[in-house]
Amino acid sequence: MGRATHPGPVADAAFGQFARANAAPLFRSALLLTTDWHRAEDLVQDTLARMYRIWGGIARIDNPAAYAQTVLARQFLSQRRRRSSGEIPSAALPEALATDADADLRLALLSALRSLRPADRAVVVLRYLADRSVEQVAADLDRSPSSVKVQSMRALAQLRELLGAELTELIQN
């Protein structure tokens, strides 16, 4: 991606294109992080806003789409630190969350993810949805690789326990 001058209509148009192309993948990560549709929307907007603010220096970032995922995870943990630990998912599920073919799988996973510590959730979402290595996640979240490994193992063990036999069935269906 070429350097975008900032601010200006040309840069804004380029950013708009980037934002439209990346809103959906960011939202998918955000949903697994927040486990709530509305919070996920809010997190995506915060992330895009942050990306917009740094857009002028974006040429120094090799892969803005990948970097946006890093920003998303950091924003999530930052919001979590600033807000109360109380996490109340919306009572009403948007139709898109609960009616398609993979709805059961999705709802089971969201319910299980909700039980994880936020930091562990961020680790597994970056590892298994964004497909990042332990070292990459460690750099993303400013942790040591060994700490990321421990968090990842702990989170997966918890997910296995929470989802149990249902897991294999959900995947095979």
Partner: peptide, 23 residues
């Protein structure tokens, strides 16, 4: 599991992009 759980979601990308830009 993670990818399949969210693959078919259809979030409001246009609205999110515009709101992010405005924010």
């Amino acid at each position: 599991l993670f990818r399949r759980a969210v693959a078919t979601l259809d979030p409001p990308s246009e609205r999110l992009a515009e709101a992010g830009l405005q924010r």
